[in-house]
Design a protein around this nucleic acid. Structure first.
Length: 467
RNA sequence: GGCGCCAUAGCCAAGUGGUAAGGCGACGGUCUGCAAAACCGUUAUUCACCAGUUCGAAUCUGGUUGGCGCCUCCA
């Protein structure tokens, strides 16, 4: 089997062959930092992260770029409202983005280019487009001449004639065609601006992605990702800009993730709040959120609400518990060598096949559960410790590709002295067969958020899961 | 109006021609002082509906109904 990826442009899964066999180039649209990141941003970043992790797990090197659009109307508006510099607004939201992406263990990109740091590259590209007739200056703005690019509409499946009807022109815009879009916007008084051949101004929304992706990944690169809502106009315009400027195909595979919907709960102040990534992070384990987001294929829309998240937490716990089976076996058997097991071999192969089929993490997760069951059973039935270890190791390897099952977070074992004392008292009561007292102490522990499981090797304490 | 997507068990979710993964939940059993966890078993003869193609369809085609996204800023 070979890796097949669904390409939005071709509307089909196509076998992946890299532009450069030594390194895969990948660009994922980050956010316009006009506000704090929401769950949708998290999903886009996470989808890209898993694609990257899987590619790397197959031995491919990946050059990964995620941008920040750090100047736009809303950022400027926001800054004016608060009476601060627009950079402060951008900086604040970029910091929040990193808090969220780090919490979800999204690997850092190789580059995080920002629009304001690439004005020269942007100006160069616009000048090329003007020189070739693909763009034209008008009253200090520069517009892209949509008619001039034959492929316009190919990504989103639109035809210029169809779009014309709904188009409108804002007052003050001097466009030849209502569908032309701004590459450069003349600055209004008081707005942040940069010098250009057409006067003081700032870049339009789409041009920076064309300029920056080309700078870091070349004129043609492998994968370009982002939310499905970016297909039009953002990505359509990127294609128009880049291919007109370079004369080369822009991107081999367009990978778009589905939207996150907030259904099941009525739209209200609190649900809107819940949509903010950091709000959700304050309520659920990041591990659970990550697992949940990956339990649906990345291209499908996903509903986001507390019930689903709670279920995800329960499912994830099952996986983590399976890993504890190994510890139980190892505690009895001592250190052992890995002995390849049939269960591992099968799981690994099925997992790989699922991921090669357009990064089907949902299907791949199913194989994690299959292996978890095999592992539990092997441990229960007293299978050779070497095989049990092999299964656990395989489970970890697969989980690491998806970035789920976080072990050793350090908080599992740290219990206040009071808790330890209660647990000891309960053990003493159990030895005396004073079940009433033992159960009472168990309840007291639970009141402090600690669960007790009486296992063969002694009681196991664990924090009651939050979700 | 234009472009596109989706309808699979109580809930979530895989499955794109060969006879329905996985998870949550529920029920029964083993184990346990009791639990928990784990394991075993049960929980869709059927994939919104109607036609059609085929030896064979959840999977392909046409239609119907019901959701949804984009077409303006959106991950």
């Amino acid at each position: 089997m070979a890796l097949r990826i669904y390409d939005t442009l071709r509307r089909d899964k196509v076998e992946f062959t890299p532009v450069n066999p030594n390194e895969v180039g990948m660009y994922v649209c980050g956010m316009t930092v006009q506000g704090p990141p929401h769950v949708g941003h998290a999903r886009a970043a996470l989808s890209g992260d898993v694609i990257r992790r899987f590619l790397q797990s197959t031995g491919r090197r990946v050059r990964y770029v995620t941008n920040f659009t750090d100047v736009d109307d809303k950022i400027i508006e926001r800054a004016a409202e608060e009476g601060i510099d627009f950079r402060a607004v951008a900086e604040r939201n970029i910091a929040a983005y990193f808090r969220v992406s780090d919490a979800l263990r999204i690997h850092r990109a190789d580059y995080y280019p920002r629009a304001t740091e690439h004005i020269p590259e942007i100006l160069t590209m616009i000048e090329e487009l003007v020189a070739s007739g693909h763009a034209y200056p008008s009253n200090g703005d520069v517009y892209y001449r949509v008619d001039r690019f034959g492929g316009y509409g190919k990504l989103s499946g639109r035809r210029l004639e169809d779009m014309r009807a709904g188009a409108r022109i804002d007052p003050g815009e001097a466009k030849e065609n209502p569908l032309d879009f701004a590459l450069w916007k003349a600055a209004k008084p008081g707005e942040p601006s940069w010098k250009s051949p057409w006067g003081e101004g700032r870049p339009g929304w789409h041009i920076e992605c064309s300029a920056m992706s080309t700078k870091y990944l070349g004129r043609t690169f492998d994968l370009h990702g982002g939310g499905a809502d970016l297909i039009f106009p953002h990505h359509e315009n990127e294609i128009a800009q880049s291919e007109a400027a370079t004369g080369q195909p822009f991107v081999h595979f367009w990978v778009h993730n589905g939207m996150v919907n907030l259904t099941g709960e009525k739209m209200s102040k609190s649900t809107q709040h819940f949509f903010l990534a950091e709000e959700v992070l304050s309520e659920f384990d990041p591990e659970t959120i990550r697992y949940y987001l990956l339990s649906t294929h990345y291209r499908s829309p996903i509903e986001f609400n507390r019930e689903r998240l709670a279920e995800a937490g329960a499912a994830l716990r099952r996986l983590k518990t399976a890993l504890e089976s190994e510890q139980r076996v190892l505690a009895a058997a001592g250190p052992v060598e890995r002995v390849p097991s049939e269960a591992s071999r099968q799981a690994r192969s099925a997992f790989h096949e699922a991921m090669e089929d357009d990064f089907n993490s949902a299907r791949a997760l199913g194989h994690l559960f299959d292996l978890a069951r095999d592992l539990n059973r092997a441990a229960d039935e007293g299978a050779p410790a070497g095989e049990v270890t092999d299964m656990a190791a395989t489970l970890r390897e697969m989980a690491d590709i998806l970035g789920v099952i976080w072990e050793g977070k350090g908080d599992e074992l740290a219990f206040p002295e009071e808790v330890t004392r209660l647990a000891e008292a309960r053990e003493a009561a159990r030895k005396d067969r004073n079940w009433k007292m033992a159960d009472e102490l168990r309840q007291q522990l639970l009141d402090r958020g600690v669960l007790v499981e009486d296992r063969p090797g002694g009681p196991l304490l664990r924090w009651k899961p939050r979700d």
